[in-house]
C-alpha cells in the first residue's frame, strides 16, 4: 500500500544478539537507574504541615468582598448571575435603610445571595462581570459535605470577615489577591 503522507517509519526489528538475549546487562542498567533514584529529590509534600502554594490564576471558592470600612460591595445588580454559564448564582435585592449605611456601600444591596457550588464550574466569569469588585474567587477549596443542600452557600458563608472587627480572618480570606494583582 502506498503511503499517503511519507511520514510513516518502517520499524526495523533485528533479532536480539547474545548480549541482549542474556537480559542481564539491561537488568543491571535498570537497577542502576532505580538505585540512582534513591539520591534524587523527593517529590512528596507532607501535606498538612507543608502546603503547595496556589498558582496566581487559581480560582477557588467565591468570596463576597467588603471595602476598607467593612461595608459590603455588592449592589445586587445581577451581572454575575447573568454572566454565570452554569446558572449557579441567585440573589434578591433590597434597598438600604437609613440606619444601615455602615453595612452596605451603595443604596441597593443583596438581601439573599446564594451560589450552588455543585453547579459552579469555577470559571471566574462572575468575577470579571462584577463592576463593583464585590465577588472574586479565592484560594480555598469547597469543603466536602454530606447533603446537596450543604453545597448551596448562603451569603453569610460567602461574605469575607469584617476587616475592622476580625482583622486576621480578613487577611486570611483575602489571601494573596493583592500581591498577585500587583505582579500583573
Amino acid at each position: 500500500m502506498a503511503s499517503l503522507t511519507n511520514r510513516s517509519k518502517v520499524l526495523e526489528q533485528t533479532p536480539l544478539n547474545l548480549m541482549e538475549r542474556l537480559y542481564l546487562p539491561s537488568i543491571f542498567k535498570g537497577m542502576a537507574i532505580t538505585f540512582s533514584h534513591i539520591f534524587k529529590k523527593k517529590a512528596t509534600i507532607s501535606y498538612p504541615e507543608e502546603q503547595r502554594p496556589f498558582s496566581p490564576v487559581f480560582r477557588g471558592l467565591h468570596v463576597l468582598n467588603r471595602d476598607e470600612e467593612g461595608r459590603e460591595n455588592c449592589t445586587a445588580c445581577g451581572l454575575c448571575a447573568v454572566a454565570c454559564p452554569a446558572e449557579a448564582i441567585t440573589m434578591e435585592a433590597a434597598e438600604r435603610q437609613k440606619s444601615e449605611e455602615h453595612l452596605y456601600r451603595e443604596e441597593k444591596y443583596a438581601a439573599k445571595y446564594e451560589i450552588n457550588m455543585l453547579r459552579c464550574i469555577f470559571c471566574g466569569l462572575c468575577e470579571e462581570a462584577c463592576p463593583k469588585d464585590a465577588i472574586y474567587l479565592s484560594e480555598t477549596f469547597a469543603p466536602s459535605n454530606f447533603t446537596r443542600q450543604g453545597f448551596i452557600y448562603s451569603k453569610e458563608q460567602l461574605l469575607i470577615p469584617d476587616p475592622n472587627t476580625e482583622k486576621e480572618k480578613y487577611q486570611v480570606a483575602k489571601g494573596l489577591r493583592e500581591v498577585h494583582k500587583k505582579n500583573k
Binding site: 532505580t34 538505585f35 533514584h37 534513591i38 534524587k40 523527593k42 517529590a43 512528596t44 507532607s46
Partner: peptide, 10 residues
C-alpha cells in the same frame, strides 16, 4: 518509596 522519589510511611 525511596526508589520512586517518594517518602514512604512516616
Amino acid at each position: 518509596a525511596v526508589l520512586q522519589d517518594r517518602l514512604g510511611p512516616n
